[in-house]
């Protein structure tokens, strides 16, 4: 904790003003979650009453227990993990390869194919619902991990992200390796991919989040509660007339936790890993 070891710039970084600004912004960003936590420990009557009660008084930990009685939470958690792993691995492999090709390789129709892939981002996902359902149905994959996960392993977003990442990496190493006689796959796998680790970490986080919260698609291709991921299970708690909000919030807190932990672990890699890919 010796201040002398810090450069003047680094001391400036820790001024009261900086921490005040960051603290205030941080509080604004996180305030809705604090409230969500409070709601998850309230009674439904307190949530529905106006003016709002900011503190429930008697904390209703039972809401968290109710999550497990109302939902096959562990089954659904397993499904969420399963489909997310499939999608993340699929996207990391496919998107980094395609992204690399679009960034660094020359081939006929490169621009056209990139435009085609990007165009699928521009259509609302609801458009794909019925055609994709029919494909998955015809493949006999309704109610399966693969069926839920399959369309999501192809990602225009991921291709675009990885293309941008590879575009930002220096050319020199690649050229050196090529002169050494490495084939394109070796160059990609041994040299460029390690350099892209921070970008891949970002892709992992973003894909995980998207997959974890994906709602409409899994609801449509699964039929029974124990085959659904957590996101869909959570939604079934919303009634047509009344909703038990505290239990829903408790379930949502439980569902969010693993992603938050993953981020806490990965954010160091995203940030520190990037120090190696200094672009100069």
């Amino acid at each position: 904790m010796s201040k002398e070891s810090l450069s003047p710039a680094q001391q400036g970084a820790n001024s009261v003003r900086t921490h005040l600004v960051l603290g205030i912004i941080g509080f604004v960003m996180v305030f809705p979650f604090i409230w969500q936590l409070v709601i998850s420990l309230s009674t439904n009557d307190q949530v529905m009453s106006v003016p709002p009660t900011f503190w429930p008084g008697d904390l209703q930990w039972g809401n968290f227990v109710d999550v497990f009685t109302k939902l096959p939470f562990f089954d659904q958690f397993g499904v969420s993990v399963g489909i997310t792993v499939i999608r993340v691995i699929g996207q990391v492999v496919l998107c980094s390869m395609a992204g690399y090709a679009f960034a660094r390789m020359r081939f006929r129709g490169r621009g056209v194919f990139l435009a085609v892939i990007l165009s699928i981002l521009m259509v609302p996902p609801q458009v794909y619902l019925i055609p994709q359902f029919q494909i998955i149905q015809n493949l006999g994959l309704l109610n399966t991990f693969i069926g839920i996960a399959l369309p999501g392993i192809f990602s225009a977003f991921g291709v675009f992200l990885m293309r941008q990442i590879f575009l930002g990496l220096p050319l020199e190493l690649e050229e050196a390796a090529r002169l050494d006689g490495a084939n394109p796959f070796q160059i990609f796998y041994k040299i460029m991919l390690p350099l892209a680790t921070p970008g891949i970490s970002a892709l992992v986080i973003i894909t995980t989040l998207w997959s974890w919260n994906d709602l409409l698609w899994p609801l449509v291709v699964t039929t029974y509660a124990e085959k659904m991921p957590v996101s869909a299970g959570l939604a079934t708690l919303a009634g047509s007339i009344t909703t038990d909000y505290p239990v829903m919030m408790a379930a949502s807190v439980l569902a969010m936790a693993p992603v938050l932990i993953l981020f806490i672990i990965l954010q160091r890699r995203v940030v520190e890993g990037l120090a190696f890919s200094g672009s100069k």
Partner: peptide, 21 residues
């Protein structure tokens, strides 16, 4: 008999999708 529960907000969207197949 297996119960298939879908939230109200998505119920008829899902039925239509299923009817299409």
């Amino acid at each position: 008999v297996k119960i298939d529960i879908t939230p109200w907000a998505q119920y008829f969207t899902k039925l239509q999708t299923q009817a299409s197949g």
